[in-house]
Design a binder for these strands. Sequence first.
DNA 1: TTCCGACAGTGGGGTCGCAAT
DNA 2: ATTGCGACCCCACTATCGGAA
Length: 513
Amino acid sequence: MLLARLAHVSATVATTPARSQKIALLADLFRSATPADAPIVIPYLAGRLPQGRLGIGWSLLKEPPPPAAEPGLTVQATDAALTAIGAVSGQGSQGERKRLVRELMGAATAEEQRFLVGLLTGEVRQGALDAIAVEGLARATEAPPAAVRRAVMLAGAVTPVAEALLARGPDALEEFLLSVGRPVFPMLAQGAGSVAEGIGKLAGPCAVEEKLDGIRVQVHRDGPDVRVYTRTLDDITDRLPELTAAALELKDEAFILDGEVIALDGDGRPRPFQEIAGRVGSRVDVAAAAAALPVSPVFFDVLYAAGQDLLDLPLAERHGHLARLVPEPMRVRRTVVADPADEAELSAAEAFFAETLRRGHEGIVLKDLAAPYSAGRRGAGWLKVKPVHTLDLVVLAAEWGSGRRTGKLSNLHLGARRDDGTFAMLGKTFKGMTDAMLAWQTERLREIAVGDDGFVVTVRPELVVEIAYDGLQKSTRYPAGVTLRFARVVRYREDKTPAEADSVETVLANRQP
DNA sequence: TTCCGACAGTGGGGTCGCAAT
DNA sequence: ATTGCGACCCCACTATCGGAA
């Protein structure tokens, strides 16, 4: 198959708003893929490379060679070229990689170049990624969509499922069972505004668990063999020897556990997320990193134990297995609300939330005790509740948006007031704005603009905006030495002048101990 | 007919490792 | 030694489609 065909379908999908139509377009393409093309075509149309990330970013792609006039690249030749690029490494490799990338891009037509840039940077922006591609695969192979989705979640990737389906038809889905050693996509939580709101939404018996601010891990043990995976199913076993040791201490021979890795002070308080992320990211000298910051796993779910797949069991039963398998200090703290209509239980849940924050943790997760483990879904069965802080900050500048925000001023630079009347930038945000706010702020900011370099529009510091954020983190980038975590716009405060905005002192005083 | 679940898009900061400067 | 880039950790929020209610 020619790459031109994929690129054209991708471009068509991008301009088609209806999801049903996107699925039909993808299914058509998948049906005409040969067995050799399919393992390439399907991930490509899901916005993924079969090789995973290749270390090619904007810097290697920003000045493409002139496009080819006629399409000649096949899908398989493209895949072979990318595999070759991925294999180049070591001193002086950047020049060779650049040459190979230019060679590939030079063989591509303009439409193919656009597609390749999206694919290589991970931004295909066709309004269809994994989920829609999986629907298209189901349509093309006449397999039940729900069964295909489940197989993909259990396989941890689309490609093996696609290959099996195309080779052997819908019956092949039965091969995709939960198995120890093969990671599955973890279940995720949705947000809730408050404890009461979350419990109300679940509308049934629920667990209230501490939400720990670390790195999500899935730990597999099969006899002496232990593997540790991240949320995106990267294998990080070698970076966290403590987890292998912990898993081998448990009495069962085979299990899959879901949990969080954190680090604790001598007095039991959690270390900041940044430190744990640094530890988990350290690959070169693991022993030194482990000595400097030992980490502990805290488990909250079990997917496989006692020789069985537990995914479809209700949480209440899975937790029974967890409690049997994992000793209490290695389990997340929790309480249970048996009757959401019981005022006393509700206030106990509120008290648990407050206590969790006092202990220095991020928040809580409310979990429906009847819900199965929905691998890979941001299911309604788990709801996270975190405290929200707000500040009134001054807009210092704004960046021109991209994609559907092209032509709109989008990403705001936020400043806190200093005593001398200047402002200290605390970070940026593009979140929380409706289309109407985006249009309004574009107009308003242009009125007070003092400069535009084509990327950033600097403005007179006159507009005050209320910003919600999850907390402060240390920063070397911003002048106050801190930045806002997960900042988002709540509303503009046209009733406030910059002189009434929050000061740097106020921000630092609110810092968590 | 209205409501709501699931997706995709639009980017945020930090940290590590690697290659180039 | 320092700098820039890319991968991957954490992530919030809005708009939209289409099935559920």
